[in-house]
């Protein structure tokens, strides 16, 4: 999700002991030491020179080559196999949601700085001429656009909650949804681990509080297994979201205090700490109440989601196993089906 400050390691039962961030050296076969003194933009240059990412001139907005996409597809299919036995309902949405749903989701309370909304020109011919005149003169022409009913999704799971709420009360055992989408967050950066457009695959569990808690405990364990399968050095730590402003520090402290978020962190860049490649968010009954999601018993449903950053997992693999996937360790290639 970002580069949150982590103060604690997450234990299975939610108890957490203070711990200093530790380097992952020696954990897993990844040649972490080789990372050396690389700085964020250097890794971007490396990826660009290797023909993996194609720069567009806008930080965080990159093209992907066939080789990079083959890796993304392999990771996506690996996640499909990793979660196959869960029997999740597969849903797919465009990388957008009704602006109305974003507005009532509460996202603007915490993250007004990350939101992207779609605007379009709806004027007449005279206004069109004026727009072209603005463009010609180098003035701001975008003020002549109006907001549409569409906003960009900041996380793949947002369209899931209103969609499921519209079905009526949940079945007795709740639901498990597999969702994936391109996502947008306005945080331009030269760090290849912080993209404005990226892909997120998620599992969303909605149901009784105990079921959602069990889902959380399960993923604390499975996250470790996932990183092990990919032979990536990692740590799991409680975390908080990059809430907006000074007041956001209070929200962040509250989120962390309640143990609502944990991340699977892999060192990718030398600077700024390790990168969250998996992020688990426990919403309690917030979305249940916000979107009117009811359990079979008529109570506000609890929910949680676990998200996988596909580009971040790809970058983690490229960092630790080398820029040429054909030369990766046999075990890693096997688990990725190549």
């Amino acid at each position: 999700m970002s580069a949150p400050v982590r103060t604690a390691r997450v234990a299975g039962g939610g108890s957490a002991a203070p711990v200093a961030r530790r380097r992952a050296d020696g954990r897993g076969p990844g040649p972490v030491a080789r990372v050396g003194t690389d700085r964020a933009p250097d890794f971007l240059r490396e990826l660009s020179a290797a023909g993996l990412l194609l720069e567009t001139g806008v930080p965080g907005l990159y093209g992907r080559s066939a080789r990079f996409e083959a890796l993304i597809e392999a990771i996506d299919q690996f996640l499909t196999r990793f979660t196959a036995a869960d029997g999740a309902e597969r849903l797919r949405f465009p990388p957008a949601l009704p602006r109305r749903e974003l507005e009532r989701s509460g996202y603007l309370e915490g993250f007004p700085h990350l939101v992207g909304t779609v605007h379009a020109f709806t004027g007449d011919e005279r206004e069109h001429r004026a727009l072209l005149a603005d463009l010609e003169a180098g003035r701001d022409w975008t003020m002549r656009q109006r907001p549409t009913a569409v906003a960009l999704v900041p996380a793949a799971c947002y369209p899931v909650y209103p969609t499921l709420a519209a079905r009526g009360p949940l079945p007795e055992r709740g639901v498990l949804v597999d969702v994936a989408s391109w996502c947008f967050r306005h945080e331009p950066s030269r760090k290849p681990t912080r993209l404005q457009f990226f892909r997120m695959r998620e599992q969303v569990r909605i149901g009784e509080p105990e079921a959602v808690r069990a889902f959380r405990d399960d993923w604390l364990e499975r996250g470790r297994r996932l990183a092990g399968d990919l032979a990536l050095p990692f740590e799991i730590a409680s975390a908080h979201d990059p809430f907006f402003g000074r007041g956001g520090r209070i929200l962040a402290a509250s989120q962390e205090e309640q143990g609502l978020k944990f991340e699977l962190l892999v060192p990718i860049l030398e600077e700024g700490g390790p990168t969250a490649c998996l992020s688990f968010n426990w919403h309690r009954d917030r979305f249940g109440r916000t979107f009117g999601l009811r359990t079979a018993r008529g109570e506000p449903a609890h929910s949680a989601c676990v998200g996988f950053g596909l580009e971040r997992l790809a970058l983690a693999l490229l960092r630790h196993h080398g820029l040429d996937p054909e030369r990766w360790p046999r075990a890693v290639r096997a688990v990725l089906g190549s």
Binding site: E109, G245, R246, G248, I250, L251, S254, Q255
Partner: peptide, 10 residues
């Protein structure tokens, strides 16, 4: 609430 805490701070 957490969000009201931010309002209170301001």
């Amino acid at each position: 609430t957490s969000h009201a805490t931010v309002d209170l701070m301001l």
